[in-house]
């Protein structure tokens, strides 16, 4: 599940709420509309938090996968 190309990678592994969301926001701000951010996190709370963040901000959560406790999110900037 890595057929989505990302314009930027953000590693939030080891960080806890709300840092993955805050860092994602900063990263997405630096992208152009339509570009994709790949974010990885180990905080299990980030699954629901990323979905809520995307819903509220209008950015698209393209996919979420999990492998060995590491969550990978692809976000397309609106």
């Amino acid at each position: 599940m890595s057929d989505i190309a990302s314009n930027m990678d953000l590693n939030c592994e080891g960080l806890n709420c709300p840092l993955p969301i805050l860092k994602t926001k900063k990263a997405v701000d630096s992208l152009q509309s339509g570009e994709v951010l790949k974010m990885t996190a180990t905080d299990p709370g980030s699954i629901n938090d990323m979905a809520s963040w995307a819903k509220r901000t209008g950015n698209e959560l393209v996919s979420h996968t999990e492998q060995a406790g590491v969550h990978t999110f692809f976000i397309r900037k609106k």
Partner: peptide
């Protein structure tokens, strides 16, 4: 936490 996250959520 809440204020920074709120701002991050526009």
């Amino acid at each position: 936490i809440l204020a920074s996250t709120a701002a991050a959520m526009d």
